[in-house]
Design a protein around this nucleic acid. Structure first.
Lengths: 364, 364
DNA sequence: TTACCCGATGAATCGCCGC
DNA sequence: TGCGGCGATTCATCGGGTA
């Protein structure tokens, strides 16, 4: 129950038993691609283990949904225990199972952050022409609690999307070609191997380098392979020996990125705070200097204690900036400017200068 | 309980009571846009400090998931009774409610035909940068029984989609501009009016001319307006007098459409935008790889988030390319190259490869 | 007349830290 | 645990006004 957590390895066996053997609140993120085939013969039993009589169709289906729900509740409960309070969980599925899983997640206290649609560029067509081409799968992204401080690398995803914030619909091809693992006979090793690009986006968005990512339905190890590429620790759980063997070889062949700085996805939010007073203290501005709003009207004077005065307002750069604009809030760093020669320069430049010095001195 | 069915009219009142007063098995299709149970917290402001006009109507307030589920079960039970055995039901929702509704539909014996994603071309951004842009809503399309002989106009939908099978993801804009109903003061009449293009696809795909379409949450009557255009009979149920009044006027002004080809929503001709990050995500380049300028000097390294680093410059391929050349702008796709053996190859080759995949699927 | 600029707005579960 | 301060945050589209 309280073993230490060994990472970068595959645990062989039933995911529920193994999850229950791992230390609680030890994992930063869980990615799960659970089975959704409701026609599994062995699973067609009622919760009380009585066999389902195949004569009554309606009851048969009800029983199989119940069995699936019971299975889902067990692995989700075990997964929730292992997840850190500020961790998140991803589950991928199709219309056969995802609505049941989604409702259960909400009932268990998970908090929905997004549902994400994987739009397939190359889905299998609907041969009989009786329905719309089933061209997408759904991922649910949930935090453990409503008020969790979850990880979301907003800036990184925005960069990945060339400057526009990432949307909840992701257009990606199926896993085919050389990425698709084949056995010696040329048959695919796993029936539903996920594309690495999908996991790349999942891991880049919701984990930090060094985080521990767990996949309770590891299959052929796409999660592990991408985690290794991105400098994340990983844990896989899988009961099929053939999948495990394929996953081990696959992950062993992945090269780690040597320069960890290339994996960093810095955000403004994580940069150290610099009080405006430090700017005065360090002599970059001095008491009596004049600050201007973006339109260049002279409006505020700097005081020795790092507050400013404008018209009848006094206080912090943020508070006065908000008051001047009659707005509920204001980022004073970007609002206020000073004159350097003829140029109007944002005081944020001064903050950047101080941050640069702090980083140079190994501080943070 | 067994009144005759009057069509092309709005029933004023509670949808459950009215559904229970209609004859059973009398309706060919039901389209339902129920309250989403958004559970919105406090105010939300945009970066420019303007306030977002969120959905705060009383009809979307529920005390708990249990209360919402009880409401859903009641209207779905009433709707199921009214639906013909070979009829189908559509429900639209967001992640707040659709997983609960989907699971309940399955539990009630409805048979899932498709889940369809309405991919919004112009969704509201995520103003706080805390999640993925919530850029889609989900429609569930279900038959009353597993073996229903439901209507699906495969050929018509294929025509509507320029000869390609209609997929389960529909790319359509929000209802804005002149289509959006406004009151005398210019305020929107209904907070969540759906675009007619969405209803075209729904009605065209799953009903025949002359069929009876019922909408238990009629609002301002998009379903009725489109039904009239397409020569379907319609029944609306709505309890808000202001919505009813707007819907009556709107539908009265509708003329039947004879040429269905006018309803096609042409795909964009422009080439799909491919962010450089996609090249990394798809493994065509990886973090740590080196990019060269056209003269072949080693100059930039690729980061995991699709930015690059060269000398002291970091940012997008375009921004860094411009900085290196001390130019105002730069097309990074043509400027940067990678080594393939001895050859220097433009990264634009990689973009063309990705574009080809997307274009092949008719995506954008 | 046309081109450009600016403001408005859409089903949204939209902070974090320290005192 | 609550409160207040710091300071971070937007894309596509439409319509009206101006050059």
């Amino acid at each position: 129950m309280t073993s230490t957590l060994k990472t970068n390895r595959i645990y062989e066996g039933d995911c529920i038993a193994i999850l229950e053997s791992l230390p609680e609140k030890s994992v930063d993120m869980i990615f799960a691609d659970p089975p959704y085939n409701l026609q599994l013969g062995g699973d067609l039993t009622r919760p009380d283990n009585s066999r389902v009589d195949g004569v009554d169709d309606a009851w048969d289906k009800f029983a199989s949904f119940e069995a699936y729900d019971a299975f889902s509740r067990r692995w989700l409960t075990a997964a929730r225990r292992v997840l850190k309070d500020d961790g998140t969980l991803w589950v991928i599925g199709s219309y056969h199972n995802i609505y049941r899983v989604g409702a259960m997640l909400q009932d268990m206290g998970f908090w929905m952050l997004n549902d994400v649609v994987w739009r397939k560029t190359n889905p299998m067509p609907n041969f009989r022409g009786r329905r719309f081409t089933n061209a997408h799968e759904t991922l649910l992204w949930v935090s453990k609690h409503e008020d969790s401080k979850y990880t979301f690398n907003y800036e990184a995803l925005k960069e990945l999307n060339e400057g526009i914030q990432m949307r909840s619909d992701w257009t990606l091809p199926l896993c085919t070609g050389s990425e698709r693992l084949k056995d010696a006979d040329g048959h695919k090793v796993h029936p539903t191997q996920k594309p690495e690009a999908l996991l790349y986006r999942v891991l880049l968005s919701s984990t930090k380098p060094g985080d521990v990512v767990l996949d309770p339905f590891f299959g052929t190890g796409t999660t592990g392979a991408v985690a290794k590429k991105l400098g994340r620790k990983w844990i896989g759980i899988e009961r099929d020996k053939a999948y495990i063997e394929a996953a081990r070889a696959r992950i062993a062949a992945v090269e780690e990125v040597k320069d960890l700085s290339l994996l960093a996805t810095p955000s403004k939010r994580s940069e150290p705070r610099v009080p405006f007073g430090t700017v005065i203290e360090r002599g970059l501005l001095k008491a009596g200097d004049v600050l201007y709003d973006p339109r260049g009207r002279a409006v505020a004077r700097v005081k020795a204690d790092g507050t400013i005065i404008a018209e009848e307002h006094k206080g912090s750069i943020h508070k006065v900036g908000a008051a001047i604009q009659n707005a509920p809030s204001c980022n004073g760093w970007t609002f206020w400017h000073f004159k350097a020669g003829d140029q109007m320069v944002s005081i944020d430049v001064l903050r950047q200068k101080l941050r640069g010095e702090m980083a140079g001195a190994g501080l943070n």
